[in-house]
């Protein structure tokens, strides 16, 4: 089912993409094509009586863009946090590039953009990126400027974040998540609240990251973004209810659009909570 796209995009991985700190672990793991970039085995996360993630088994091979789709409260953010090791599963195991997480070292191989911008409003664009870069490794000035250039903020390095528009902040947030050039990029609703032009720009950038060998997991509750992903994971009630390319999911559901496909799949899953 991941046939056509897979052959298109699984160009030789470029380990140079990985941050120097992460190269040994990430580079080696990425070369072994059998090793998934992200893997969850029997992941369960409960908060009291709520099962936010309810038994997820997934393995995501490297070099592709994965879309995590589901309504608000479906468990997308919790699943992401489990997969990258920012939360500990109640039961089950998570692996990044074949290494068991939670692991502090593996965080160097992950670029994580949260739903909130997570940048310092008092600081300038440059000070923000310099701060996050220093937490990841020793990067020169050019590397930081590159990260800003990609999101077209290089002309605004000295501007305080307070004076930036919402879209610019979102771009800076993305640059801060990618400055260390991680082989695994996890973006939690990266396009929420941004205008269509910027959304197109973001997706173009995601595609180029993927072409360079990075694995991207992008969560969204906007279905029209889904077709930009190589593969989709429908999530509802803490469970992955369907997986496949957009085309394939539509075909399997027998519907013309993904939203209907999603509803069809959720209807089929009796255990899912509304």
């Amino acid at each position: 089912m991941r046939d056509a796209r897979m052959t298109q995009t699984s160009a030789p991985l470029r380990p140079s993409r990985a941050a120097p700190a992460a190269v040994s672990a990430a580079g080696a793991a990425a070369h072994a094509s059998a090793t998934p970039a992200l893997e969850g085995r029997g992941l369960v996360k409960t908060y009291g009586s709520i099962r936010a993630v309810d038994g997820v088994d997934i393995a995501l091979p490297p070099g592709r863009i994965y879309g995590l789709l589901g309504p608000n409260g479906a468990g997308k953010t919790t699943l992401i946090r489990l997969l990258v090791g920012l939360a500990r599963p109640t039961s089950g195991e998570a692996y990044v590039l074949g290494r068991r997480v939670p692991s502090r070292e593996m965080l160097a191989s992950i670029g994580y953009m949260t739903q909130a911008d997570g940048i310092y409003p008092e600081l300038s664009v440059w000070e923000n990126i310099r701060f996050f870069a220093a937490l990841y490794g020793n990067f020169d000035r050019e590397r930081l400027m590159d990260a800003l250039r990609i999101v077209e903020l290089d002309g605004r390095a000295g501007t305080p974040v307070l004076q930036l528009s919402g879209g610019m902040r979102r771009r800076l947030s993305l640059a801060c998540a990618l400055v260390h050039r991680p082989p695994v990029v996890v973006l939690d609703e990266p396009t929420v609240g941004i205008d269509p032009a910027l959304r197109v720009q973001f997706w173009r950038h995601f595609r180029s990251l993927s072409a360079e060998g990075a694995t991207l997991l992008v969560s969204s509750h906007v279905m029209d973004e889904a077709d930009r992903c190589d593969e989709l994971l429908f999530i509802r009630g803490g469970k992955v209810i369907a997986r496949g390319s957009g085309e394939e999911l539509r075909r399997r559901a027998g519907t013309a659009d993904l939203e209907e496909a999603f509803l069809r799949f959720s209807g089929a899953d009796v255990g899912a909570t509304a």
């Binding site: 700190a21 990258v84 920012l86 502090r104 070292e105 965080l107 160097a108 992950i110 994580y112 949260t114 739903q115 909130a116 911008d117 997570g118 940048i119 310092y120 409003p121 996050f132 937490l135 990841y136 801060c176 998540a177």
Partner: peptide, 14 residues
């Protein structure tokens, strides 16, 4: 509150 701690903790900082 601002989400920067979450981001900090997603880096290899101890």
């Amino acid at each position: 509150v601002g989400g920067t701690l979450e981001r900090l903790l997603a880096t290899p900082v101890t």
